[in-house]
Amino acid sequence: MQWNNKDLEQYIDEKVIEYVDTLLIPLMPISLKNDKNLIKRAFQAELLSIFGNELERQFKGRMFLMPIYHYLSTADKQLEVTRLNEWVEDALTNPFKHVLFLTLDSDWKKVEAQLQGEVLWFPSMQSGDLQSDETKGMVKDQISQLTDLIKTYW
């Protein structure tokens, strides 16, 4: 399920709601500082939304993909942890059973223990051509590994 009109019309059906028990929140750092990482961040942002959409496509009937959660890459992670835990609490009462965070930002690994959801961090490319067959093959491969990982949480 995605956060859009068409999917939500299907989602609000009581029979469907009880089947959708997993919330996927992509976490994406943003900074406009013009340094060598600027292009890398934009590239990884595109990559992250591809991963989010592709995972949702495979698990449409059980996983709800939230709009991407953006934060400043310089932001205090403790504050973000507090905010995200509010998200998790809201999700758990409404009534999701699993909350997964999808990210390419390794900083979340350090605060993973404080987060009430599971962090799916994975290393990926820093730059490249998203349309090339090479990238597509690699993304496809990583997605199949991620789907296997997600199944172990269920």
Partner: peptide, 9 residues
């Protein structure tokens, strides 16, 4: 590959 239940693969 789309499941006729709720649309997973």
């Amino acid at each position: 590959p789309v499941c006729k239940h709720l649309g997973c693969f």
